[in-house]
Computed example of a mutant assay.
Amino acid sequence: MLQIPRPTPTCTRFRTEIEMPCIKCGTQMRLASIEPHGQNFDLLTYRCVPCVSEESFLQAM
């Protein structure tokens, strides 16, 4: 199976949403996980089922 690298997390998400548009295919991505990332941030990962891609964002707590 081909491994798709995860994008570099960016601090661009100001509030948590369950869905967001995929930048590759435009369909709605679903929030797949929220992981603690240090003491001040959470790492939010969204997955797109149709094009099998992921986007990750750092969110300040």
Rank of each mutant, 00 (worst) to 15 (best):
R15C: 08
V52D: 15
R30Y: 13
E35D: 12
L31I: 05
C22H: 02
L58E: 01
A60M: 02
R30L: 13
P50G: 07
A60E: 00
V52Y: 14
S56A: 10
C22Q: 05
T45Q: 08
Q3V: 13
S33M: 09
L44F: 14
T8R: 09
V52A: 15
P36N: 06
H37E: 02
R47P: 02
K24D: 12
L43Y: 05
S33I: 06
C22I: 06
T10P: 12
C48H: 07
R6Y: 13
P50S: 15
C48Q: 11
S53W: 10
C22W: 03
F41S: 00
I18V: 09
R6L: 09
C11S: 13
Q3G: 04
R15L: 14
L31T: 00
F14K: 03
R13S: 05
S53H: 07
F57Q: 02
N40Y: 01
L44M: 07
H37S: 03
M61W: 01
E19P: 01
C11Y: 08
D42R: 13
P5G: 04
R13L: 15
G38P: 11
P36T: 07
C25M: 01
S53Q: 13
Q3C: 06
T16A: 11
E17N: 01
R6A: 03
P9Y: 09
E19A: 02
M61R: 05
M1P: 05
E54M: 15
T16G: 01
S33T: 07
C48Y: 13
C25P: 06
M29N: 04
Q3M: 10
T27A: 14
S56I: 10
V52H: 11
A32S: 08
T27S: 13
E35I: 09
N40K: 02
P9D: 02
C22V: 07
R47H: 14
Q28F: 06
Q39E: 14
F14R: 03
P21L: 04
M1N: 04
P21F: 04
P36K: 08
G26V: 01
P5I: 13
S53L: 05
R6G: 01
R6H: 06
I34C: 11
P36L: 02
G38H: 11
P21V: 11
Q3W: 08
I23K: 02
Q59N: 02
F57H: 05
M20D: 04
E54D: 07
H37A: 03
